[in-house]
Design a protein around this nucleic acid. Structure first.
Length: 573
RNA sequence: CGGGGAGUGGCGUAGUCUGGUAACGCGCUUGGUUUGGGACCAAGAGACCGGUGGUUCGAAUCCACUCUCCCCGACCA
Protein backbone atom coordinates (compact mmCIF):
# COMPACT_ATOMS: atom_id res chain seq x y z
CA UNK A 1 0.00 0.00 0.00
CA UNK A 2 1.16 3.47 -0.84
CA UNK A 3 0.42 6.17 1.68
CA UNK A 4 -0.60 8.56 -1.06
CA UNK A 5 -3.46 6.20 -1.91
CA UNK A 6 -4.78 5.06 1.46
CA UNK A 7 -7.57 6.94 3.23
CA UNK A 8 -6.18 7.91 6.64
CA UNK A 9 -7.86 11.07 7.87
CA UNK A 10 -5.58 11.91 10.79
CA UNK A 11 -6.39 14.92 12.94
CA UNK A 12 -4.08 17.30 14.72
CA UNK A 13 -6.59 17.95 17.44
CA UNK A 14 -8.74 15.53 19.31
CA UNK A 15 -12.48 15.79 18.70
CA UNK A 16 -14.13 17.17 21.83
CA UNK A 17 -16.52 14.27 22.28
CA UNK A 18 -13.82 11.73 23.07
CA UNK A 19 -12.91 10.91 26.64
CA UNK A 20 -11.29 7.47 26.74
CA UNK A 21 -7.69 7.29 25.49
CA UNK A 22 -8.49 4.65 22.91
CA UNK A 23 -11.43 6.68 21.64
CA UNK A 24 -9.31 9.83 21.26
CA UNK A 25 -6.48 8.05 19.50
CA UNK A 26 -8.65 6.00 17.19
CA UNK A 27 -10.41 9.19 16.09
CA UNK A 28 -7.25 11.24 15.76
CA UNK A 29 -5.35 8.54 13.93
CA UNK A 30 -8.14 8.12 11.42
CA UNK A 31 -9.34 4.64 12.38
CA UNK A 32 -12.95 5.34 13.24
CA UNK A 33 -15.70 7.90 12.90
CA UNK A 34 -18.81 8.07 14.98
CA UNK A 35 -22.15 7.88 13.21
CA UNK A 36 -24.36 8.22 16.26
CA UNK A 37 -24.16 7.31 19.93
CA UNK A 38 -22.51 3.91 20.22
CA UNK A 39 -22.27 3.33 16.47
CA UNK A 40 -19.01 3.70 14.59
CA UNK A 41 -17.71 3.42 11.06
CA UNK A 42 -14.51 1.47 10.77
CA UNK A 43 -12.26 3.22 8.29
CA UNK A 44 -9.62 1.32 6.29
CA UNK A 45 -7.00 1.31 9.05
CA UNK A 46 -9.44 -0.08 11.60
CA UNK A 47 -10.72 -2.64 9.13
CA UNK A 48 -7.17 -3.85 8.58
CA UNK A 49 -6.77 -4.32 12.33
CA UNK A 50 -10.13 -6.05 12.63
CA UNK A 51 -9.23 -8.43 9.82
CA UNK A 52 -5.99 -9.33 11.56
CA UNK A 53 -7.75 -9.93 14.86
CA UNK A 54 -10.42 -12.05 13.24
CA UNK A 55 -7.79 -13.99 11.30
CA UNK A 56 -6.17 -14.94 14.61
CA UNK A 57 -9.53 -15.84 16.09
CA UNK A 58 -10.44 -17.98 13.09
CA UNK A 59 -7.17 -19.83 13.18
CA UNK A 60 -7.47 -20.68 16.87
CA UNK A 61 -11.15 -21.56 16.60
CA UNK A 62 -10.52 -23.81 13.65
CA UNK A 63 -7.71 -25.46 15.60
CA UNK A 64 -10.16 -26.69 18.21
CA UNK A 65 -12.52 -27.97 15.58
CA UNK A 66 -14.72 -24.92 15.27
CA UNK A 67 -16.74 -24.57 12.07
CA UNK A 68 -17.51 -21.10 10.90
CA UNK A 69 -21.06 -20.09 10.03
CA UNK A 70 -22.57 -16.72 9.31
CA UNK A 71 -25.97 -16.29 10.89
CA UNK A 72 -28.61 -13.60 10.41
CA UNK A 73 -28.60 -10.41 12.42
CA UNK A 74 -32.29 -9.91 11.68
CA UNK A 75 -34.35 -12.36 13.70
CA UNK A 76 -38.07 -13.10 14.02
CA UNK A 77 -39.60 -12.54 17.46
CA UNK A 78 -40.86 -16.13 17.64
CA UNK A 79 -37.48 -17.70 18.14
CA UNK A 80 -36.69 -15.38 21.01
CA UNK A 81 -40.11 -16.00 22.49
CA UNK A 82 -39.39 -19.72 22.44
CA UNK A 83 -36.36 -19.33 24.64
CA UNK A 84 -38.16 -16.78 26.78
CA UNK A 85 -35.62 -14.10 26.09
CA UNK A 86 -37.93 -11.86 24.09
CA UNK A 87 -39.02 -10.64 27.54
CA UNK A 88 -35.77 -11.14 29.40
CA UNK A 89 -33.81 -8.87 27.10
CA UNK A 90 -36.22 -6.01 27.72
CA UNK A 91 -35.17 -2.61 26.49
CA UNK A 92 -31.72 -3.85 25.58
CA UNK A 93 -33.03 -5.45 22.42
CA UNK A 94 -33.59 -3.46 19.27
CA UNK A 95 -37.03 -4.39 18.01
CA UNK A 96 -38.77 -3.57 14.77
CA UNK A 97 -41.72 -4.53 12.65
CA UNK A 98 -41.79 -5.49 9.02
CA UNK A 99 -44.35 -4.23 6.50
CA UNK A 100 -46.77 -6.96 7.47
CA UNK A 101 -46.54 -5.96 11.10
CA UNK A 102 -44.54 -9.03 12.11
CA UNK A 103 -42.19 -8.44 15.00
CA UNK A 104 -38.47 -8.75 14.45
CA UNK A 105 -35.36 -7.88 16.37
CA UNK A 106 -31.70 -7.28 15.75
CA UNK A 107 -29.84 -10.14 17.37
CA UNK A 108 -27.88 -9.39 20.53
CA UNK A 109 -26.34 -12.84 20.54
CA UNK A 110 -27.08 -16.11 18.77
CA UNK A 111 -27.93 -18.89 21.20
CA UNK A 112 -31.44 -19.12 19.79
CA UNK A 113 -30.45 -19.31 16.16
CA UNK A 114 -27.67 -21.82 16.62
CA UNK A 115 -29.89 -23.88 18.90
CA UNK A 116 -32.63 -23.91 16.29
CA UNK A 117 -30.20 -25.21 13.69
CA UNK A 118 -29.05 -27.86 16.11
CA UNK A 119 -32.64 -28.80 16.90
CA UNK A 120 -33.60 -29.08 13.27
CA UNK A 121 -30.52 -30.88 12.04
CA UNK A 122 -28.90 -32.88 14.84
CA UNK A 123 -30.64 -36.22 15.42
CA UNK A 124 -28.10 -38.58 16.88
CA UNK A 125 -25.40 -38.55 19.49
CA UNK A 126 -23.16 -39.74 16.67
CA UNK A 127 -23.30 -36.22 15.23
CA UNK A 128 -21.87 -34.80 18.44
CA UNK A 129 -19.80 -33.00 19.49
CA UNK A 130 -20.04 -29.90 17.35
CA UNK A 131 -18.41 -26.52 17.74
CA UNK A 132 -20.05 -23.83 15.64
CA UNK A 133 -19.08 -20.22 15.56
CA UNK A 134 -19.55 -17.06 13.61
CA UNK A 135 -18.24 -13.54 13.53
CA UNK A 136 -21.11 -11.13 13.26
CA UNK A 137 -22.38 -7.69 14.02
CA UNK A 138 -24.55 -7.73 17.12
CA UNK A 139 -26.88 -5.09 18.44
CA UNK A 140 -27.67 -3.93 21.91
CA UNK A 141 -29.65 -0.86 22.77
CA UNK A 142 -27.38 0.14 25.61
CA UNK A 143 -28.87 2.66 27.98
CA UNK A 144 -25.65 4.58 27.87
CA UNK A 145 -23.06 3.90 25.18
CA UNK A 146 -19.71 5.29 26.23
CA UNK A 147 -15.95 5.25 26.13
CA UNK A 148 -15.69 5.09 22.36
CA UNK A 149 -15.40 1.51 21.20
CA UNK A 150 -15.68 0.04 24.65
CA UNK A 151 -19.44 0.29 25.14
CA UNK A 152 -21.32 0.41 21.88
CA UNK A 153 -24.72 -0.44 20.50
CA UNK A 154 -23.50 -2.14 17.35
CA UNK A 155 -20.42 -4.30 17.62
CA UNK A 156 -18.55 -7.18 16.10
CA UNK A 157 -18.43 -10.33 18.10
CA UNK A 158 -17.17 -13.81 17.60
CA UNK A 159 -19.47 -16.22 19.31
CA UNK A 160 -19.12 -19.96 19.42
CA UNK A 161 -21.47 -22.66 20.61
CA UNK A 162 -20.63 -26.20 21.61
CA UNK A 163 -23.04 -29.11 21.42
CA UNK A 164 -22.32 -32.21 23.44
CA UNK A 165 -24.05 -35.34 24.60
CA UNK A 166 -22.96 -35.09 28.20
CA UNK A 167 -21.32 -32.93 30.82
CA UNK A 168 -17.92 -34.48 30.24
CA UNK A 169 -18.15 -33.35 26.64
CA UNK A 170 -19.12 -29.87 27.77
CA UNK A 171 -16.16 -29.76 30.14
CA UNK A 172 -13.85 -30.65 27.28
CA UNK A 173 -15.33 -28.05 24.96
CA UNK A 174 -15.18 -25.43 27.69
CA UNK A 175 -11.55 -26.22 28.40
CA UNK A 176 -10.69 -26.22 24.70
CA UNK A 177 -12.20 -22.76 24.34
CA UNK A 178 -10.42 -21.55 27.43
CA UNK A 179 -7.12 -22.58 25.95
CA UNK A 180 -7.93 -21.23 22.51
CA UNK A 181 -8.91 -17.90 24.06
CA UNK A 182 -5.65 -17.72 25.96
CA UNK A 183 -3.78 -18.21 22.69
CA UNK A 184 -5.89 -15.61 20.92
CA UNK A 185 -5.31 -12.92 23.52
CA UNK A 186 -1.66 -13.77 23.81
CA UNK A 187 -1.21 -13.47 20.09
CA UNK A 188 -2.93 -10.10 20.22
CA UNK A 189 -0.48 -9.25 23.01
CA UNK A 190 -3.20 -8.43 25.48
CA UNK A 191 -2.37 -8.96 29.13
CA UNK A 192 -5.47 -10.61 30.48
CA UNK A 193 -6.73 -12.54 33.39
CA UNK A 194 -9.47 -15.11 33.67
CA UNK A 195 -12.05 -14.48 36.35
CA UNK A 196 -15.19 -16.08 37.72
CA UNK A 197 -18.28 -14.26 36.57
CA UNK A 198 -22.03 -14.14 36.82
CA UNK A 199 -23.93 -15.78 33.99
CA UNK A 200 -26.64 -13.14 34.06
CA UNK A 201 -29.31 -13.36 31.40
CA UNK A 202 -27.36 -16.03 29.54
CA UNK A 203 -28.31 -18.72 32.02
CA UNK A 204 -26.14 -21.68 32.73
CA UNK A 205 -23.83 -22.70 35.53
CA UNK A 206 -20.20 -21.77 35.26
CA UNK A 207 -18.84 -18.79 33.43
CA UNK A 208 -15.43 -17.23 33.10
CA UNK A 209 -14.55 -13.82 31.83
CA UNK A 210 -11.36 -12.77 30.09
CA UNK A 211 -10.44 -9.40 31.43
CA UNK A 212 -7.85 -6.82 30.44
CA UNK A 213 -6.91 -4.65 33.40
CA UNK A 214 -7.42 -1.01 32.42
CA UNK A 215 -8.81 2.10 34.02
CA UNK A 216 -10.97 2.48 30.95
CA UNK A 217 -12.78 -0.72 31.89
CA UNK A 218 -16.25 -0.91 33.34
CA UNK A 219 -16.00 -4.09 35.34
CA UNK A 220 -14.44 -4.43 38.76
CA UNK A 221 -12.32 -7.47 39.42
CA UNK A 222 -11.35 -8.74 42.85
CA UNK A 223 -8.11 -10.66 42.81
CA UNK A 224 -5.70 -12.17 45.28
CA UNK A 225 -1.96 -11.81 44.86
CA UNK A 226 -1.23 -14.89 46.99
CA UNK A 227 -3.38 -17.40 45.15
CA UNK A 228 -5.07 -17.62 41.78
CA UNK A 229 -8.41 -16.31 43.00
CA UNK A 230 -9.92 -13.69 40.70
CA UNK A 231 -13.58 -12.88 40.25
CA UNK A 232 -15.83 -10.17 38.94
CA UNK A 233 -17.23 -8.23 41.88
CA UNK A 234 -20.67 -9.25 40.74
CA UNK A 235 -19.64 -12.73 41.84
CA UNK A 236 -16.65 -12.28 44.15
CA UNK A 237 -16.77 -13.20 47.81
CA UNK A 238 -14.40 -12.33 50.61
CA UNK A 239 -13.64 -13.03 54.23
CA UNK A 240 -14.42 -10.28 56.67
CA UNK A 241 -13.87 -10.19 60.42
CA UNK A 242 -16.90 -11.35 62.37
CA UNK A 243 -18.45 -9.00 64.86
CA UNK A 244 -19.49 -9.98 68.35
CA UNK A 245 -22.54 -8.11 69.57
CA UNK A 246 -23.84 -7.59 73.01
CA UNK A 247 -27.13 -9.29 73.72
CA UNK A 248 -28.84 -5.93 73.94
CA UNK A 249 -32.44 -5.21 74.82
CA UNK A 250 -35.34 -7.55 75.40
CA UNK A 251 -37.14 -5.96 72.50
CA UNK A 252 -36.44 -3.15 70.05
CA UNK A 253 -36.74 0.35 71.39
CA UNK A 254 -37.89 3.23 69.25
CA UNK A 255 -36.12 6.55 69.59
CA UNK A 256 -36.42 9.87 67.79
CA UNK A 257 -33.72 10.76 65.27
CA UNK A 258 -34.73 14.09 63.80
CA UNK A 259 -32.88 14.96 60.61
CA UNK A 260 -31.08 11.61 60.35
CA UNK A 261 -31.23 10.39 56.76
CA UNK A 262 -28.09 8.38 56.16
CA UNK A 263 -26.01 5.68 57.74
CA UNK A 264 -23.34 8.30 58.22
CA UNK A 265 -25.78 10.65 60.01
CA UNK A 266 -26.67 7.92 62.45
CA UNK A 267 -23.08 7.11 63.33
CA UNK A 268 -22.62 10.60 64.73
CA UNK A 269 -26.11 11.02 66.19
CA UNK A 270 -26.19 10.74 69.96
CA UNK A 271 -27.51 7.30 70.79
CA UNK A 272 -26.83 6.10 67.25
CA UNK A 273 -24.42 3.35 66.28
CA UNK A 274 -21.34 2.59 64.20
CA UNK A 275 -22.14 1.75 60.58
CA UNK A 276 -21.33 -1.92 61.08
CA UNK A 277 -23.93 -2.04 63.85
CA UNK A 278 -26.66 -0.67 61.63
CA UNK A 279 -29.01 -2.52 59.32
CA UNK A 280 -29.39 -0.75 56.00
CA UNK A 281 -32.83 -1.30 54.52
CA UNK A 282 -33.16 -0.89 50.77
CA UNK A 283 -36.40 -1.21 48.89
CA UNK A 284 -36.24 -2.77 45.45
CA UNK A 285 -38.78 -3.64 42.86
CA UNK A 286 -37.94 -7.12 41.61
CA UNK A 287 -39.91 -7.61 38.42
CA UNK A 288 -42.33 -5.02 39.81
CA UNK A 289 -42.76 -6.84 43.12
CA UNK A 290 -41.42 -5.03 46.18
CA UNK A 291 -38.64 -6.52 48.24
CA UNK A 292 -36.66 -5.35 51.23
CA UNK A 293 -32.94 -5.82 50.91
CA UNK A 294 -31.02 -5.74 54.18
CA UNK A 295 -27.32 -4.95 54.31
CA UNK A 296 -24.91 -4.16 57.07
CA UNK A 297 -24.67 -0.38 57.29
CA UNK A 298 -21.12 -0.17 55.98
CA UNK A 299 -21.66 -2.63 53.13
CA UNK A 300 -22.65 -1.96 49.52
CA UNK A 301 -25.30 -3.94 47.71
CA UNK A 302 -24.25 -5.57 44.45
CA UNK A 303 -27.32 -5.58 42.25
CA UNK A 304 -26.13 -8.43 40.08
CA UNK A 305 -25.87 -10.60 43.17
CA UNK A 306 -29.39 -9.53 44.05
CA UNK A 307 -30.84 -10.51 40.68
CA UNK A 308 -28.77 -13.70 40.56
CA UNK A 309 -29.98 -14.81 43.98
CA UNK A 310 -33.64 -13.92 43.38
CA UNK A 311 -33.84 -14.97 39.72
CA UNK A 312 -35.32 -11.58 39.04
CA UNK A 313 -35.15 -10.29 35.48
CA UNK A 314 -35.40 -6.64 36.40
CA UNK A 315 -34.40 -4.99 39.61
CA UNK A 316 -34.64 -1.33 40.36
CA UNK A 317 -34.69 0.79 43.48
CA UNK A 318 -38.24 1.63 44.44
CA UNK A 319 -39.39 5.22 44.06
CA UNK A 320 -39.93 7.26 47.24
CA UNK A 321 -43.69 7.24 46.66
CA UNK A 322 -43.72 3.45 46.36
CA UNK A 323 -41.69 3.19 49.54
CA UNK A 324 -43.95 5.54 51.46
CA UNK A 325 -46.91 3.53 50.31
CA UNK A 326 -45.30 0.24 51.27
CA UNK A 327 -43.69 1.03 54.60
CA UNK A 328 -45.30 4.27 55.65
CA UNK A 329 -42.02 6.11 55.83
CA UNK A 330 -39.39 7.59 53.56
CA UNK A 331 -35.80 6.47 52.92
CA UNK A 332 -33.72 7.42 55.92
CA UNK A 333 -36.10 5.86 58.40
CA UNK A 334 -36.76 2.46 56.87
CA UNK A 335 -36.53 -0.88 58.59
CA UNK A 336 -37.75 -4.46 58.35
CA UNK A 337 -38.78 -5.03 61.96
CA UNK A 338 -42.37 -6.18 62.09
CA UNK A 339 -42.77 -6.12 58.34
CA UNK A 340 -45.00 -8.89 57.06
CA UNK A 341 -46.05 -10.02 53.62
CA UNK A 342 -43.05 -8.50 51.89
CA UNK A 343 -40.16 -10.48 50.51
CA UNK A 344 -37.18 -9.76 52.73
CA UNK A 345 -33.73 -10.78 51.56
CA UNK A 346 -30.74 -10.22 53.81
CA UNK A 347 -27.03 -10.30 53.25
CA UNK A 348 -25.20 -13.10 55.01
CA UNK A 349 -23.00 -10.66 56.89
CA UNK A 350 -26.05 -9.92 59.03
CA UNK A 351 -26.53 -13.51 60.15
CA UNK A 352 -26.67 -13.92 63.91
CA UNK A 353 -26.33 -10.21 64.62
CA UNK A 354 -28.00 -8.73 67.66
CA UNK A 355 -28.45 -5.33 69.24
CA UNK A 356 -28.48 -3.51 65.92
CA UNK A 357 -29.95 -0.17 64.93
CA UNK A 358 -32.31 0.31 62.01
CA UNK A 359 -35.11 2.55 60.78
CA UNK A 360 -38.49 2.40 62.48
CA UNK A 361 -40.70 2.95 59.42
CA UNK A 362 -41.71 6.14 61.09
CA UNK A 363 -40.07 9.26 59.71
CA UNK A 364 -37.32 10.60 61.96
CA UNK A 365 -37.35 7.53 64.18
CA UNK A 366 -35.09 4.52 64.52
CA UNK A 367 -35.05 1.32 66.52
CA UNK A 368 -32.20 0.13 68.70
CA UNK A 369 -31.67 -3.28 70.26
CA UNK A 370 -32.76 -5.10 67.13
CA UNK A 371 -31.82 -8.77 66.90
CA UNK A 372 -32.11 -10.09 63.41
CA UNK A 373 -33.35 -13.59 64.13
CA UNK A 374 -35.78 -12.49 66.83
CA UNK A 375 -37.16 -9.32 65.25
CA UNK A 376 -37.06 -9.66 61.49
CA UNK A 377 -38.86 -12.16 59.36
CA UNK A 378 -36.13 -12.87 56.80
CA UNK A 379 -37.42 -14.68 53.72
CA UNK A 380 -34.04 -15.45 52.23
CA UNK A 381 -30.38 -15.14 53.07
CA UNK A 382 -27.91 -14.52 50.31
CA UNK A 383 -24.51 -13.08 49.55
CA UNK A 384 -25.39 -9.62 48.32
CA UNK A 385 -22.39 -7.59 49.33
CA UNK A 386 -19.83 -6.04 47.01
CA UNK A 387 -16.35 -7.01 48.10
CA UNK A 388 -13.91 -4.20 48.77
CA UNK A 389 -10.17 -3.84 48.38
CA UNK A 390 -8.35 -5.01 51.48
CA UNK A 391 -10.79 -7.73 52.46
CA UNK A 392 -9.63 -11.31 52.92
CA UNK A 393 -9.32 -13.74 50.03
CA UNK A 394 -11.99 -16.45 50.28
CA UNK A 395 -9.49 -19.15 49.26
CA UNK A 396 -6.37 -18.34 51.20
CA UNK A 397 -5.00 -16.02 53.85
CA UNK A 398 -4.19 -13.32 51.28
CA UNK A 399 -5.79 -9.95 50.77
CA UNK A 400 -8.04 -8.99 47.88
CA UNK A 401 -7.58 -5.98 45.69
CA UNK A 402 -10.23 -4.61 43.36
CA UNK A 403 -9.29 -3.21 39.95
CA UNK A 404 -11.06 -2.00 36.84
CA UNK A 405 -10.97 -4.14 33.74
CA UNK A 406 -12.32 -4.46 30.23
CA UNK A 407 -14.24 -7.62 29.44
CA UNK A 408 -12.86 -8.97 26.17
CA UNK A 409 -14.30 -12.45 26.33
CA UNK A 410 -16.78 -14.55 28.24
CA UNK A 411 -17.30 -18.29 28.18
CA UNK A 412 -20.32 -20.06 29.64
CA UNK A 413 -21.40 -23.54 30.44
CA UNK A 414 -24.99 -23.27 29.37
CA UNK A 415 -26.03 -26.86 29.98
CA UNK A 416 -29.58 -27.39 28.76
CA UNK A 417 -30.87 -23.85 29.26
CA UNK A 418 -31.62 -23.48 25.54
CA UNK A 419 -31.85 -27.05 24.37
CA UNK A 420 -34.68 -27.71 26.83
CA UNK A 421 -36.68 -24.57 26.16
CA UNK A 422 -36.22 -25.00 22.42
CA UNK A 423 -36.38 -28.77 22.41
CA UNK A 424 -33.02 -29.50 20.83
CA UNK A 425 -32.53 -33.17 21.52
CA UNK A 426 -30.67 -36.14 20.12
CA UNK A 427 -31.05 -39.87 20.61
CA UNK A 428 -28.31 -41.28 22.83
CA UNK A 429 -26.72 -44.72 22.49
CA UNK A 430 -29.64 -46.25 24.39
CA UNK A 431 -32.10 -44.77 21.94
CA UNK A 432 -33.36 -42.30 24.52
CA UNK A 433 -34.09 -38.69 23.60
CA UNK A 434 -31.84 -36.34 25.60
CA UNK A 435 -31.32 -32.58 25.47
CA UNK A 436 -28.07 -31.43 23.94
CA UNK A 437 -25.60 -29.99 26.43
CA UNK A 438 -24.44 -26.58 25.29
CA UNK A 439 -21.75 -24.05 25.94
CA UNK A 440 -21.30 -20.61 24.50
CA UNK A 441 -18.17 -18.57 24.07
CA UNK A 442 -17.91 -14.92 23.07
CA UNK A 443 -15.12 -12.58 22.11
CA UNK A 444 -15.57 -8.85 21.60
CA UNK A 445 -13.53 -8.15 18.49
CA UNK A 446 -13.84 -4.36 18.70
CA UNK A 447 -12.94 -4.52 22.36
CA UNK A 448 -9.73 -6.33 21.55
CA UNK A 449 -8.89 -3.48 19.21
CA UNK A 450 -9.78 -0.81 21.77
CA UNK A 451 -8.04 -2.67 24.62
CA UNK A 452 -4.84 -2.92 22.61
CA UNK A 453 -4.91 0.85 22.14
CA UNK A 454 -5.63 1.39 25.84
CA UNK A 455 -2.67 -0.83 26.68
CA UNK A 456 -0.24 0.36 24.05
CA UNK A 457 -0.12 4.11 23.59
CA UNK A 458 2.10 7.04 24.45
CA UNK A 459 2.22 10.78 23.91
CA UNK A 460 2.81 10.26 20.19
CA UNK A 461 -0.07 7.93 19.57
CA UNK A 462 -0.77 4.23 19.26
CA UNK A 463 1.90 1.55 19.40
CA UNK A 464 0.30 -1.59 18.03
CA UNK A 465 1.39 -5.11 18.72
CA UNK A 466 2.91 -6.34 15.44
CA UNK A 467 0.36 -9.11 15.10
CA UNK A 468 -2.63 -6.77 14.79
CA UNK A 469 -1.06 -3.56 13.50
CA UNK A 470 -2.66 -2.18 10.33
CA UNK A 471 0.82 -2.35 8.79
CA UNK A 472 3.89 -4.03 10.13
CA UNK A 473 6.31 -1.64 8.48
CA UNK A 474 6.38 1.83 7.02
CA UNK A 475 9.09 2.85 4.60
CA UNK A 476 9.71 6.57 4.86
CA UNK A 477 11.82 8.39 2.30
CA UNK A 478 12.41 11.74 3.96
CA UNK A 479 12.35 13.45 0.59
CA UNK A 480 10.41 11.77 -2.17
CA UNK A 481 11.88 14.24 -4.69
CA UNK A 482 15.33 12.81 -4.12
CA UNK A 483 15.84 10.35 -6.97
CA UNK A 484 17.96 7.91 -5.01
CA UNK A 485 15.54 7.87 -2.08
CA UNK A 486 12.61 7.39 -4.37
CA UNK A 487 14.18 4.57 -6.28
CA UNK A 488 15.56 2.78 -3.19
CA UNK A 489 12.39 3.08 -1.17
CA UNK A 490 10.33 1.71 -4.03
CA UNK A 491 12.74 -1.18 -4.44
CA UNK A 492 12.62 -1.98 -0.71
CA UNK A 493 8.86 -1.69 -0.74
CA UNK A 494 8.56 -4.23 -3.53
CA UNK A 495 11.05 -6.50 -1.88
CA UNK A 496 9.17 -6.53 1.41
CA UNK A 497 5.88 -7.10 -0.34
CA UNK A 498 7.39 -10.03 -2.18
CA UNK A 499 8.32 -11.75 1.06
CA UNK A 500 4.90 -11.11 2.58
CA UNK A 501 5.64 -8.22 4.91
CA UNK A 502 2.64 -5.97 5.41
CA UNK A 503 4.30 -2.74 4.34
CA UNK A 504 3.20 0.78 3.50
CA UNK A 505 5.36 3.17 1.50
CA UNK A 506 5.06 6.78 2.59
CA UNK A 507 5.41 8.21 -0.89
CA UNK A 508 3.77 11.53 -0.03
CA UNK A 509 5.52 14.76 -0.88
CA UNK A 510 5.47 15.85 2.75
CA UNK A 511 8.09 17.11 5.10
CA UNK A 512 9.73 14.34 7.16
CA UNK A 513 8.20 15.65 10.40
CA UNK A 514 4.70 15.17 9.05
CA UNK A 515 5.47 11.62 7.99
CA UNK A 516 7.05 10.73 11.32
CA UNK A 517 4.16 12.20 13.29
CA UNK A 518 1.62 10.37 11.18
CA UNK A 519 3.26 6.97 11.38
CA UNK A 520 3.82 7.35 15.12
CA UNK A 521 0.21 8.37 15.63
CA UNK A 522 -1.13 5.52 13.57
CA UNK A 523 1.18 3.21 15.45
CA UNK A 524 3.07 1.25 12.84
CA UNK A 525 5.52 -0.95 14.79
CA UNK A 526 8.56 -0.54 12.53
CA UNK A 527 9.84 2.20 10.29
CA UNK A 528 12.66 2.23 7.79
CA UNK A 529 13.75 5.80 7.15
CA UNK A 530 15.71 6.77 4.07
CA UNK A 531 17.65 9.98 4.51
CA UNK A 532 21.03 11.53 4.15
CA UNK A 533 22.96 8.38 5.00
CA UNK A 534 21.41 6.58 2.10
CA UNK A 535 24.34 7.67 -0.03
CA UNK A 536 26.55 5.59 2.27
CA UNK A 537 24.20 2.67 1.82
CA UNK A 538 22.58 3.09 5.22
CA UNK A 539 18.97 3.38 6.36
CA UNK A 540 17.47 3.92 9.76
CA UNK A 541 15.53 1.21 11.56
CA UNK A 542 13.04 2.64 14.04
CA UNK A 543 11.04 0.65 16.58
CA UNK A 544 7.83 2.42 17.55
CA UNK A 545 7.35 0.79 20.95
CA UNK A 546 10.65 1.86 22.51
CA UNK A 547 11.62 4.57 20.02
CA UNK A 548 14.90 2.81 19.41
CA UNK A 549 16.76 3.93 16.29
CA UNK A 550 19.67 2.21 14.64
CA UNK A 551 21.52 2.52 11.37
CA UNK A 552 21.40 -0.57 9.23
CA UNK A 553 23.04 -1.19 5.91
CA UNK A 554 20.83 -1.73 2.91
CA UNK A 555 22.09 -5.28 2.53
CA UNK A 556 21.01 -6.21 6.04
CA UNK A 557 17.79 -4.32 6.42
CA UNK A 558 15.50 -7.02 5.06
CA UNK A 559 16.90 -9.56 7.46
CA UNK A 560 16.76 -7.17 10.43
CA UNK A 561 13.11 -6.44 9.80
CA UNK A 562 12.30 -10.05 9.15
CA UNK A 563 13.80 -11.02 12.48
CA UNK A 564 11.98 -8.27 14.32
CA UNK A 565 8.54 -9.33 13.12
CA UNK A 566 9.24 -13.04 13.28
CA UNK A 567 8.63 -12.90 17.00
CA UNK A 568 5.05 -11.88 16.49
CA UNK A 569 2.82 -14.79 15.65
CA UNK A 570 1.27 -13.32 12.56
CA UNK A 571 -1.63 -14.71 10.57
CA UNK A 572 -2.40 -13.06 7.29
CA UNK A 573 -6.07 -12.16 6.97
C1' C B 1 -34.36 6.94 33.61
C1' G B 2 -31.92 10.79 37.41
C1' G B 3 -27.94 14.59 37.60
C1' G B 4 -24.41 17.72 34.88
C1' G B 5 -22.29 19.82 30.29
C1' A B 6 -22.37 21.01 25.08
C1' G B 7 -24.27 21.92 19.86
C1' U B 8 -21.10 28.24 15.81
C1' G B 9 -16.97 26.45 8.26
C1' G B 10 -13.85 19.60 8.07
C1' C B 11 -11.48 19.75 13.45
C1' G B 12 -10.57 22.72 18.01
C1' U B 13 -12.62 27.11 19.94
C1' A B 14 -14.16 32.70 20.81
C1' G B 15 -18.53 35.53 20.51
C1' U B 16 -24.18 34.53 24.04
C1' C B 17 -24.29 37.55 30.32
C1' U B 18 -24.90 43.31 27.93
C1' G B 19 -29.25 41.77 20.56
C1' G B 20 -26.76 45.46 15.42
C1' U B 21 -25.88 40.41 10.52
C1' A B 22 -19.97 35.82 12.55
C1' A B 23 -14.04 35.82 14.57
C1' C B 24 -9.41 32.99 15.61
C1' G B 25 -6.06 28.58 15.29
C1' C B 26 -5.54 24.05 12.65
C1' G B 27 -6.90 21.74 8.17
C1' C B 28 -8.26 22.66 2.75
C1' U B 29 -7.19 25.23 -2.48
C1' U B 30 -3.60 28.11 -5.64
C1' G B 31 1.36 30.24 -6.34
C1' G B 32 6.23 30.65 -4.45
C1' U B 33 10.21 29.48 -1.02
C1' U B 34 11.39 25.11 1.90
C1' U B 35 12.61 19.49 3.14
C1' G B 36 15.12 14.81 9.58
C1' G B 37 10.01 15.51 14.15
C1' G B 38 3.11 18.33 12.49
C1' A B 39 7.61 24.71 7.72
C1' C B 40 7.15 29.93 5.87
C1' C B 41 5.09 33.95 2.76
C1' A B 42 1.06 35.52 -0.24
C1' A B 43 -3.73 34.99 -2.24
C1' G B 44 -8.36 32.18 -1.72
C1' A B 45 -12.64 28.75 -0.78
C1' G B 46 -15.69 27.34 3.04
C1' A B 47 -20.95 28.63 8.41
C1' C B 48 -28.47 30.51 6.65
C1' C B 49 -24.55 29.73 14.36
C1' G B 50 -28.67 21.74 15.83
C1' G B 51 -34.17 22.37 14.60
C1' U B 52 -39.11 24.75 15.11
C1' G B 53 -41.88 28.65 16.84
C1' G B 54 -41.94 33.37 19.35
C1' U B 55 -40.24 38.52 21.14
C1' U B 56 -37.90 42.65 18.39
C1' C B 57 -36.91 47.59 13.43
C1' G B 58 -33.11 43.81 14.00
C1' A B 59 -31.59 37.30 17.15
C1' A B 60 -25.69 32.95 17.23
C1' U B 61 -27.12 36.18 21.45
C1' C B 62 -33.59 36.89 24.71
C1' C B 63 -38.14 33.32 25.49
C1' A B 64 -40.72 28.47 24.67
C1' C B 65 -40.63 23.79 22.76
C1' U B 66 -37.74 20.06 20.53
C1' C B 67 -33.63 16.99 18.53
C1' U B 68 -28.73 15.30 19.12
C1' C B 69 -24.06 14.38 21.47
C1' C B 70 -20.68 13.96 25.80
C1' C B 71 -19.77 13.02 31.14
C1' C B 72 -21.40 10.92 36.22
C1' G B 73 -24.94 7.58 38.18
C1' A B 74 -28.65 3.78 37.20
C1' C B 75 -28.57 -0.13 33.71
C1' C B 76 -25.48 -3.66 30.91
C1' A B 77 -24.92 -11.87 27.09
Amino acid sequence: MRWSKIFTPTLRETPAMAEAVSHKLLLRAGYIRQLTAGVYSYLPLAQRVLLKITAIIREEMNNIGGQEHLLPALNPAEIWQESGRWQVMGDNMFRLKDRKGAELCLAMTHEEIFTSIARDELRSYKQLPQIWYHIQTKFRDEARPKSGMLRVREFIMKDAYSFDLDLEGLDKAFEAHREAYCLIYKRCELEFSIVEASSGAMGGSKSSEFMVYSDAGEDWIASCADCKYAANTEKATSKIPSITDEAGLESPEKFPTPGVRTIEDLTTFPGGAAANRQIKTLVYMLDDKPALVLMRGDHQLNETKLTDSTQAINARPAHPAEIQNLLGALPGSLGAVGVKDIFIIADKALEGRTNMVTGANHNDHHLRGVSIARDINITKWADLRSVESGEGCPNCSGTLRVDKAIEVGHIFKLGTRYSESMKATVLNAEGKEVPIIMGCYGIGVGRILASAVELYNDADGISWPVSIAPFELVITPTNINDALQKETSTKLYEEFMAIGVDVILDDRDERPGVKFKDSDLIGIPYRITLGKKLKEGKVEFFTRRNKEVKDVSLENIVEVLREAIAKANIVKP
